[in-house]
Design a protein around this nucleic acid. Structure first.
Lengths: 95, 95
DNA sequence: TTGACAGGCAAGTAGCGACTTGCCTATTGT
DNA sequence: ACAATAGGCAAGTCGCTACTTGCCTGTCAA
């Protein structure tokens, strides 16, 4: 569970999650290109790869290997633990 | 919004939030004592004070001064932004 | 008024984490 | 077969941050 917070701590990783939210199942190179072109980030392929490893270890990303491609799929399920730990005060369920 | 994730990144700060969830409105010294006695942490008063400052800056804690005491109150409202950003996939509202 | 208590400010240290660099493996197309 | 593509491994550098240490301010009780 601590891995989830550690993964969310970095702004680049949060942007990667945004990218996969908008377009799920991207490869490492696709993510690199979109981080550069759409968010103005200048990162090495290695840097992005390490970020993806952290996100996968946290359970926020599931990977699927196919030939020489590796697709990354978002999984927001671990985020639910945050609300179970600190319930939103005095509010009903969220829509 | 980035402050919220930075605040949640540290395990000690998450335990502080747990403490305030269980017993809201504690002072700095009360939190220090409970971190030591209930969680086995050996932290300086300064360290805890700095953690509380980070949590307050993130909006997760509101402070109320009264005489020489300063009470700390939990506010989980900023956490709602997490779900707005990455909705829980394929699930209905949480109870 | 003086001492004890609750908290704050600031500088210094140490360790973790993000990023790079260099090289390597595996799959695909010509 | 060979080159290009997609990705992986490992060591090294650098900056941020958690924590400490030392001293200072404000409040309450004797």
């Amino acid at each position: 569970m601590a891995d989830v917070f550690k993964a969310l701590a970095d702004p680049t990783r949060r942007i990667i999650l945004d990218e996969l939210t908008e377009r799920d199942g991207q490869t490492l190179f696709e993510i690199c290109v979109r981080l550069t072109s759409r968010h103005g980030l200048c990162l090495t392929r290695q840097a992005v790869s390490q970020h993806l490893a952290v996100l996968e270890e946290a359970g926020l990303i599931a990977t699927r290997r196919q030939g020489r491609y590796k697709f990354h799929h978002l999984d927001t399920a671990p985020l639910a633990a945050i609300f179970e730990r600190w319930p939103l005060t005095g509010k009903g369920p969220q829509p």
